[in-house]
C-alpha cells in the first residue's frame, strides 16, 4: 500500500508538472511562434534552430547544462535563490524550467505552422474596424488557429508527461517533490518489481495513445469539414 501511494503521488506530480509547463509554454510560445512565423530577419533562423534543439539533443545534455546553470555559482541559480530563497536544482520549480525548455519545440512548432497559414490580411480588415492588438489576437487569431493551439497544448502536455532524462539530471528522485512517473517506473525496474512497472508503463502508454488519437481524430474531423 505504501508503494501504491508513492505511485499516485508520482502521477499527481507528473500531471501538475505537465499542466504548469503547458500553460507557461502556450503563453511564452505564442508570441515567439508569431514572431518566427512573420519575421524576415536572418536572426530568426538562429532562434528557430535553438527552439528545435531539444528535438535532437539527448535530454541528459539539456539536463547537464541546466544543472550547471542552477548551481548557486551561476547567474540563474543565484538569481533564483535571491528571489525565492530556494534553489532550483532538485525542486519542482526546477523541473518546470527544465520541462519548458525540453517541450518548447512541441508547442512552438505547431503554433508557428498555424500562424503561417493564418491570413494576415484579415488583421488589416479588423484594424479598419477599430480592433486593437489584443482584440485581434483574442477574436481572430486564436479562433482561426485553434487547431494549432490544440495540437500545441496536447503535444506539449504529452511530451512533458514522458520526460525522463532532464528530470533525472536536475530533479533527482524526491518522492512528492521531484519524483515523476517515468522515474518511478525506472525505480520499479531497478528493484525488479515488474508488476508495478507494468502498471506504470502500460498506463503511460495508454494515456499517450489516447491523447494522440484525440488529437489526430480532432484534426482529421476538422480537415474533413473544411
Amino acid at each position: 500500500m505504501n508503494l501504491l501511494a508513492s505511485d499516485i503521488a508520482a502521477l499527481w506530480l507528473t500531471l501538475q508538472l505537465a499542466a504548469v509547463t503547458t500553460t507557461i509554454l502556450l503563453i511564452v510560445g505564442a508570441p515567439l511562434a508569431w514572431w518566427l512565423a512573420r519575421s524576415e530577419s536572418r536572426f530568426a533562423s538562429v532562434v528557430e534552430a535553438t527552439v528545435a534543439l531539444p528535438l535532437i539533443l539527448p535530454p541528459t545534455v539539456i539536463g547537464f547544462y541546466l544543472l550547471i546553470a542552477f548551481s548557486p555559482d551561476n547567474f540563474l541559480g543565484s538569481g533564483w535563490s535571491a528571489l525565492t530563497g530556494h534553489s532550483l536544482a532538485f525542486t519542482f520549480s526546477g523541473l518546470v524550467v527544465g520541462s519548458v525548455i525540453y517541450s518548447l519545440p512541441f508547442v512552438v512548432q505547431p503554433l508557428q505552422t498555424g500562424f503561417q497559414h493564418f491570413d494576415h490580411k484579415l488583421l488589416e480588415a479588423a484594424e479598419t474596424m477599430g480592433a486593437g492588438t489584443l482584440d485581434r489576437f483574442l477574436n481572430l487569431i486564436i479562433p482561426l488557429t485553434r487547431r494549432a493551439f490544440a495540437t500545441a497544448a496536447l503535444l506539449g502536455f504529452a511530451h512533458t508527461m514522458g520526460e525522463f532524462g532532464v528530470v533525472l539530471m536536475i530533479g533527482g528522485n524526491i518522492p512528492g517533490e521531484t519524483q515523476v512517473l517515468s522515474i518511478a517506473l525506472y525505480d520499479h525496474v531497478e528493484a525488479l518489481d515488474y508488476q508495478r512497472a507494468h502498471w506504470l508503463a502500460g498506463g503511460l502508454l495508454a494515456f499517450s495513445f489516447a491523447l494522440l488519437i484525440l488529437l489526430y481524430g480532432f484534426n482529421r474531423h476538422k480537415a474533413m469539414n473544411k
Binding site: 480588415a125 484594424e127 479598419t128 474596424m129 480592433a131 486593437g132 477574436n139 479562433p143 482561426l144
Partner: peptide, 29 residues
C-alpha cells in the same frame, strides 16, 4: 493609426472572417 481613423474599408478580396457567420461578421463591426 488605422484603428483610430474611423474610416470604413471594403477590400478587393472581401476579407470576411471565415470563422464567423455573415451575422457574426456584421456584429464584429
Amino acid at each position: 493609426p488605422a484603428k483610430q481613423r474611423q474610416l470604413g474599408y471594403v477590400f478587393q478580396e472581401n476579407r470576411l472572417f471565415p470563422h464567423l457567420s455573415v451575422e457574426g461578421n456584421l456584429d464584429f463591426a
